[in-house]
Simulated scan of single mutants.
Amino acid sequence: MMNRRRFLGAGIGAALAAPLLGSPVLAAGGPHVLTATDVHVKDYPTVEAVRWIGETMARETGGRVTIRQYHSGQLGRESEAIDMARFGAIDMTRVYSGALNNAFPLTQALCLPYVFDSVAHMRRAMDEGVGRAVLDGFAKRGLVGLAIYDSGARCFYNARRPIRAPADLHGMKIRVPVSDIFIRMLRLFGANPTPLALGEVFSGLETHMIDGAENNIRSFHSSRHFEAARYWSQTEHSYAPDVLLVSQRTLEALRPADRELLLDTARQSVAVMRRLWDASEAEARAAVSEAGVQRNDADLAAFARAAQPLLAEYRRDPAIDTLYRRIRDLA
């Protein structure tokens, strides 16, 4: 198996050479093998959805376009994957919208606390125009937005105590994604936000570098964080979704018919991902309960009130406020 360092070296070298030499694949008339990355494990719904895209592309093109996946963070963190896709070192990547906030500001509207009321509300907003508006914003910086996938309700989990109100987080070290919104939100809740990559959370819990983290229950289970954090609190502070991206260079290098097929197949994959998500989320919930994790409800209104200053600040941006209003109109 190609290791990460060799892949990145070869990929970035090829990306830099491409403008001078042209695509060797197209020149030879051979097949396109697109590289896709994901930090999640091989049976995670987003990984399975991209696998479905690859299988569909291979079938419809007679094997001319296929996808090779690197799951489980084999090629590095999401922040690295975003840059690699922008410069053509990889072709596709699935990343959490919070990792995109700084480079692509419209994604901030999807990550604001308590902007979505439920999974159904989030899906409705993505299907009825908000998702398309966010995806269209990627083309300015070398990427094309293919699809928006679910990421469930993000909630707190920790190794110390149940979290029922913001006061219960005071003084706790909580892992957050490398996202300004999440860092500032945790400070408003009274916690000590600790930005870490997903792959570093388990060791952080075991060594007590952090007290807890926040994520959806599917990731809580698949990452096995429940073995070290025995309290799950249903705060539902964010439903920020995932985004599937393709390098603009890659898309433009495809034949027009293959390009349209990829765009259409990616759109269809949203329904595939949602079916897988619903089933796997229910399984994860049952599994962590069976493992003895203590689950509790939380005072959602108290958390929403604590987050209001952050929401008000981001809504001063007219573009963010427009998307926020469109989302809330669909609640």
Rank of each mutant, 00 (worst) to 15 (best):
N101L: 09
S238T: 13
S280R: 12
G131D: 05
D211R: 03
A109W: 07
A307C: 11
W277D: 10
S233K: 09
A282P: 04
P177R: 06
A312P: 01
R68F: 05
L310C: 09
L254A: 10
F220L: 08
Q108S: 11
R295F: 04
P241W: 12
V33G: 00
G137S: 15
R86F: 08
V178P: 02
G142Y: 04
K173G: 03
I67Y: 11
L263C: 04
P241F: 08
H208G: 07
G190N: 05
H121I: 06
E252L: 10
V178G: 00
M126F: 14
I53Q: 09
R68T: 10
N102C: 01
A191D: 07
S179A: 14
D278V: 13
H208N: 13
V65G: 09
E260Q: 14
S151K: 08
V115T: 05
F189H: 01
P113V: 07
Y114P: 01
T93E: 08
K140S: 13
R123K: 06
R51M: 09
L186S: 13
V33N: 09
D38M: 08
H32N: 04
E283F: 04
R218E: 15
S222I: 12
F156V: 15
D242S: 14
N3I: 01
S23Q: 03
R249S: 10
I67M: 12
R259S: 06
A99H: 05
S118E: 11
